[in-house]
Design a protein around this nucleic acid. Structure first.
Length: 810
DNA sequence: GTAGGGTTAG
């Protein structure tokens, strides 16, 4: 292109002496040099134009049309339109140029505007073709076909371009075999049926139709293959269409077979094959293809790179990914806009998925070009790393958002325990005109799980069915979790049984649902069913299975499953698995065995191990070992207020008053607030709750009444309590109440009970508000306190008269 | 002046 520019500049000097026709020819020649083979050449358009203005040359006719075209191709549609508007009576070529440009840039409205303003007497087939393609680009297959009919009614002759366009439109909407055959006949009648581009288009309709659930994929692919085999002339597109056809219909072997028989070094076809492997999880095959391309000298491009990088990201192959990154830097000198954009986006994903969030951030920060994909990728990075505040700030800074953005943010809130925020965002998303997808529903439903908001969850379930997502895997899994979390195991089971496809997440969720609600034996049974169906258990499966065994007291089975993790499935047990095993043993009173496990573990015991041991000791009233575990916890979690309170109470319980005094002194020094506080120890399947400083509510009977109402009310809300509690007081009788299991939340509830009726309560303890305590607070605000304000991070939850509203502190 | 294939964000 340098040459073109130089020639041009040389022309300037002699321009005035030159004949106007020669000048026009010169400009025409210059504009001719801007061509698709050298897309960057389009950027010369303004220079050529500036030159025309400077030399006093006024472009008209075909030179002006060409100039408009070149401006369109260099993506300056606004300026192209300005030039167009200055033409008193634009001819069909100028109009078609603009129609095509608007169509390609995703602006069909403007294209239609120009098309409909075009008088019928000057219209031609090319113009119709451009408009048909415009609709097709806009995914409006019906409009494209309607225009095709209009064209024929008005006696315009369809040509091969028309058929390729209209077949492209048909591919968007075709889901019946007849669709394909009807058009196929029309094409043959028109006499264009032998033209390669038209046959390619017919094949692509068959291919598209083959992936519709309404037809037999193999018979349509067979028809497509027959057309392909019988083609007299095949071009690059023919090969790509048939290969992508097989890939899209998940017949990777057939695709590979065609590819292997292809002589052309066709990068697009190879890319299609690689992406097929990547989407089906065949990472080694994808990487093998990548290597082979290099060996065969097939020039890789950004599509190749993004696919293999994504393969590495999904498989966690950080070193492979890094090697490819280095290879790209070594091989690619060009830093074209689109190339940089897509490769950098893939790199951001590679790095965060391999746990390198900071590296991902670095690429995001340093890249000179960003688009929505880049923003969504970095948003996912922070959401997945659990850095919800970072994610929130990215979300608010984003220049634009799409459905994916909202969905990622909703699930981010949900997984960080901010159910209310997740639901709010789901509603806001709908208000902003986004139609939720099944993933968005899954996020919202999981929010309900976090909040144990059964009614809301049910409503979302109904909406989900209305939207036609009832066979969605992710939404189904979310429903299982939600119903389980709200205590309605039957509903969870019903969802599980009616899901058309399930994966290990579904199985895990269902096993957990049964295990958490005291159906340990059934949970184990389901796990065995899962193994029978050849579904491979993962780390999560074993966590839920071990918990289930623990709840059901199936010590032997639990031990066996634990041992099978590595022996049979090659999964190394993590600290969390060991914690479950210790929990299992301790609940069964096998303390010696538990101690043995702790001593022979391949790593130093952390807090989860001591918590499990302590929990077991609390159940069995094993104060000696319990105190030891609490002391370890106390060392490892000096910031955790609950441990101080508990340890001090345990010392008091066994009469170690000096130790108790030491801990209490530490508590005072560190300003550990005892309010609201209680601690508990479980003996004989009953939880003994000790109120702070043994200060019992003056009206003990009233407290019991509240608890009883609370229990009933929570049942009404669909929450099924599962543990028995005994409220301790020196003077009164012990009485059992069934409440929630979470001691910290319970502590707050008990703390509230000590207040006079109608008080305003502010709890400034950082407390994550979720499911059971949310409901408890709602109820408490109705029967005990007039108003309750609870702080949860930066958020506050305001409970009043049984209702809750949330907001930000700052 | 008009057509048709491959990628990256959950």
């Amino acid at each position: 292109m340098k040459n073109a520019t130089t020639t041009f500049l040389n022309l300037t000097q002699n321009l005035r002496q030159t004949d106007i026709r020669t000048v026009a020819n010169y400009y025409a020649a210059q504009l001719q040099l801007c061509c698709p083979q050298s897309p960057t050449s389009y950027s010369v358009a303004p220079k050529i134009h500036a030159h025309m203005i400077a030399s006093g040359f006024r472009p008209r006719g075909h030179i002006l049309n060409r100039l408009i075209d070149v401006y369109c191709k260099s993506s300056d549609l606004v300026y192209a339109r300005k030039l167009f508007d200055r033409i008193p009576e634009p001819d069909i070529v100028a109009r078609t140029t603009l129609i095509a440009a608007y169509s390609a840039s995703g602006n069909p409205k403007l294209a239609v505007e120009i098309f409909s303003e075009t008088p019928l007497c000057i219209r031609d087939s090319v113009c119709y073709n451009a408009m048909i393609t415009g609709y097709s680009h806009n995914k409006d297959g019906h409009a494209a076909i309607e225009l095709f009919r209009d064209m024929r009614r008005k006696n315009f002759q369809p040509d091969d371009f028309t058929f390729t366009s209209v077949l492209g439109a048909l591919a968007l909407i075709a889901d019946h075999e007849e669709h394909c055959q009807q058009l196929h006949c029309a094409v043959v009648k028109s006499g264009t049926g032998f033209i390669t581009s038209v046959v390619n288009a017919i094949i692509s309709v068959y291919v598209k139709c083959a992936s519709s659930p309404l037809v037999s994929s193999s018979s349509l692919m067979g028809a497509a293959r027959k057309l392909f085999d019988e083609m007299p002339v095949r071009d690059e597109l023919s090969w790509t269409t048939i290969i992508t056809g097989y890939v899209r219909n998940n017949d990777l072997d057939a695709a590979r077979h065609v590819l292997d028989g292809m002589n052309e070094k066709l990068v697009v076809a190879w890319n299609a094959m690689i992406s097929g492997y990547v989407h089906n999880g065949f990472v080694p095959e994808a990487l093998g293809m990548f290597r082979k391309m290099h060996l065969l000298g097939i020039k890789q491009d950004e599509f190749t790179y993004t696919s293999v990088l994504s393969a590495c990201a999904n498989a966690g192959l950080f070193l492979h990914g890094k090697q490819i990154h280095a290879y790209i830097l070594r091989t690619e000198a060009r830093l074209a806009h689109d190339f940089l954009l897509s490769v950098n986006n893939a790199l951001i994903t590679l790095y965060w998925k391999c746990g390198k969030v900071d590296e991902a951030r670095k690429i995001f920060n340093e890249t000179p070009v960003r688009d929505l994909v880049s923003w969504n990728a970095i948003l996912s990075a922070y959401v997945n790393a659990g850095q919800i505040d970072e994610a929130r700030s990215f979300f608010s800074e984003m220049p634009e958002r799409n459905l994916l953005t909202w969905t990622v943010m909703i699930s981010g809130f949900t997984h960080s325990g901010f159910g209310e925020e997740g639901l709010k965002l789901f509603n806001q998303m709908k208000l902003e005109g986004f139609k939720p997808c099944d993933y968005a529903f899954a996020g919202a439903i999981t929010s309900c799980a976090v909040l144990a908001a059964l009614e809301h969850g049910r409503q979302l379930h109904a909406q989900l069915v209305r939207f036609g997502f009832d066979s969605s895997l992710s939404a189904g899994n979310a429903l299982i979790t939600m119903y389980a979390r709200c205590g309605v195991v039957e509903a969870a089971h019903c969802v599980f049984l009616t899901m058309p496809y399930v994966d290990s997440v579904s199985w895990n969720a269902m096993i957990a649902a049964l295990g958490q609600h005291g159906h340990g034996a059934q949970a184990i049974e389901l796990f065995e069913d899962m193994l029978k169906e050849d579904i491979l258990p993962d780390r999560i499966t074993f966590l839920t299975v071990l918990s289930a065994c623990s709840h059901a007291g199936l010590v032997k089975e639990g031990r066996r499953y634990f041992d099978s993790m590595y022996d049979v499935y090659g999964i190394r047990p993590g600290e969390d698995h060991y914690a479950r095993l210790i929990d299992l043993l301790c609940r069964a009173g096998k303390f010696a065995e538990a101690k043995d496990v702790i001593q022979t573990m391949p790593f130093e015991p952390g807090t989860v191990i001591w918590e499990a041991l302590l929990a077991g000791c609390r159940i069995h009233g094993n104060m000696d070992l319990g105190i030891k575990a609490a002391e370890r916890l106390f060392e490892q979690m000096p910031q955790h207020d609950g441990t101080y309170v508990l340890l001090s109470n345990m010392y008091a319980h066994v009469g170690r008053w000096d130790d108790m005094a030491k801990v209490r002194k530490l508590m005072r020094d560190r300003r550990v607030k005892k309010e609201p506080g209680c601690s508990w120890i479980e003996v004989e399947n009953k939880v003994h709750v000790f109120l702070v400083d043994d200060a019992m509510h003056p009206e003990v009977q009233a407290v019991y009444n509240y608890l009883e109402q609370l229990r009933l009310e929570m049942r009404k809300l669909g929450y099924v309590p599962d543990t028995k509690f005994v409220l301790h007081d020196m003077e009164s009788e012990h009485k059992e109440y069934v409440l929630s299991t979470h001691s910290e939340k319970l502590a707050v509830v008990f703390g509230l009970l000590k207040l006079p009726l109608g008080a305003t309560v502010r709890v400034f303890k950082n407390l994550r508000i979720c499911g059971d305590c949310h409901n408890a607070f709602k109820f408490m605000s109705k029967v005990v306190a007039r108003e309750i304000v609870v702080r949860d991070g930066k958020r506050f939850h305001h409970f009043r008269d049984g209702e809750c509203s949330c907001g930000n502190y700052w």
